[in-house]
Nucleic acid binder design. Structure first.
Lengths: 259, 259
DNA sequence: ACAAAAGTGTTCGTACTACACCCATGC
DNA sequence: GCATGGGTGTAGTACGAACACTTTTGT
């Protein structure tokens, strides 16, 4: 398929240059682009992000988002998947494009746009290995990431606020939980992401009324209290409901007292 | 500020190449990127998009989104603003990045990523002039854009679905209306964007209860029926309310019978 | 006087809020 | 038997849904 994206007043020049297209546009074909991946996980009641620690200049010893150049014949989504797979070993996980960042000065080597993605994974599925460059790969609390390399702090900020909003209207929070979880796990997840406290009974009522959870018929074992029932997210049921016009929708409730 | 976006296993090579950074990464610095702008307007009760008609190959005679290469030292948002200004003469309007599209085959001249924006403008403010290349610039009904150049149909689709969602939780619909409008205008706007029908009394009640409209004390003139009051959006009031934790939020209601 | 849209009030049901107590298990 | 979190029911309220008639203007 012929693809082309110029328009407006440039078109005249475009047609002139069709015979040697690269010629008149050389000035424009000097950029590079990367993907950076904000990988969210949930553990010990806290929302986490996977970061790598650089062991090279620039930003030696800084924590940064996993990211990489997009290959010549590689789609953007595929590049983000690749980065994710390289750092976590996972594939087929929730991955979504967030925003592109391309301030002229953001890269030393020339003009580099980065396309930011975020992904949601189950921490238990991941084996971290500080491969290649990264002297370290580790989970960090979202609320405490400190200073990151480049404009990565801003990228995290944008991705996080996108996540906060997305989990309201799409049942993607489940991606962060193991295949069997309790209602309390789920509640803690929402509380961690939104930084609010939710009322137990109302939360459970709301979630159960959606009819999206499969009761696994099993319970927690070995806990020093009444064991909680285990559930899993029922994807098929969700698709059914969605086709009937059902809309997943949760409210954030009131802000947590940060006192 | 030093900016840089590599990470992971590449870092070793990166440090080696710091002296001649372009050298080892030449292969990556051969892309170009553009912005494409989905410009929404509202007129005669219909949601419209501003398109240009190309008069050059490729896609000669096809309608396309206004777009252009991003300049070497230009920020992405600035490029989108420039494109918008060039085609409409407007500045300082609502503009938001939507998504980036970068499939390897989408451009004939090489790898070109496009960063899509959408903007909301008041049609009455615009003077269309088919400048330069575009043999024509015209408003098209969103519901009837036909076949567009490149992957622009897909871009419109993504931008439109983003708009549908955004106007639920942020009072940006007002950007599409003139400075003085009636409640019915506003209702028609929402109906057009969401492709639903809304119940008059409930809509008015909901909107007025938000206390976001300034009653201008004037009315329509010369209409063959009871003239409607004119309102404007009260931005200052909105900022006040927002700080108090107020959340603009509307529901889409039921789907329009397309029969 | 008639057509055409503006404007308004009330009832009903649903869904969110707030709240307190019993239950099952491990130690 | 006690500590720990799991699990439930209900009453009050607020908000969205549904619905019909009067008002103001132009012709």
């Amino acid at each position: 398929m012929v693809t082309f994206s110029l328009s407006l007043w440039l078109t005249t020049q475009v047609s002139r240059s069709l015979a040697h297209p690269q010629k008149s546009f050389d000035a424009y074909f000097k950029s590079a682009f990367t993907v950076d991946n904000v990988i969210f996980g949930f553990d010990e009641g806290k929302l986490k992000i996977l970061l790598i620690k650089r062991n090279e200049d620039p930003f030696d010893n800084y924590w940064a988002l996993p990211g990489y150049f997009v290959k010549e014949d590689e789609d953007l989504d595929a590049a983000a998947e690749r980065v994710l797979r390289e750092v976590t070993g996972l594939k087929n996980v929730y991955l979504e494009q967030v925003h592109s960042f391309g301030a002229p000065g953001r890269h030393d080597f020339g003009r580099v746009i980065t396309i930011a993605y975020y992904s949601l994974i189950t921490i238990a599925d991941v084996e971290l290995h500080a491969a290649g460059v990264a002297q370290e790969v580790a989970w960090h609390n979202v609320s405490d990431i400190g200073t990151l390399a480049f404009d990565h702090e801003r990228i995290v900020e944008v991705a996080y606020s996108r996540l906060k909003r997305s989990i309201r209207s799409r049942p993607i929070g489940f991606e962060l939980l193991p295949p069997a979880f309790t209602l309390t796990d789920l509640q803690h997840l929402y509380e961690a992401i939104w930084e609010v406290e939710l009322e137990k009974r109302n939360f459970r009522k709301k979630i159960l009324s959606m009819d999206l959870l499969k009761d696994l018929g099993r319970s927690q074992k070995g806990v020093a209290h009444r064991p909680a029932k285990l559930y899993s997210f029922d994807e098929n049921r969700y698709r059914e409901l969605e086709e009937d016009g059902f809309n997943f929708e949760l409210k954030e409730g009131k802000r947590k007292t940060t006192a």
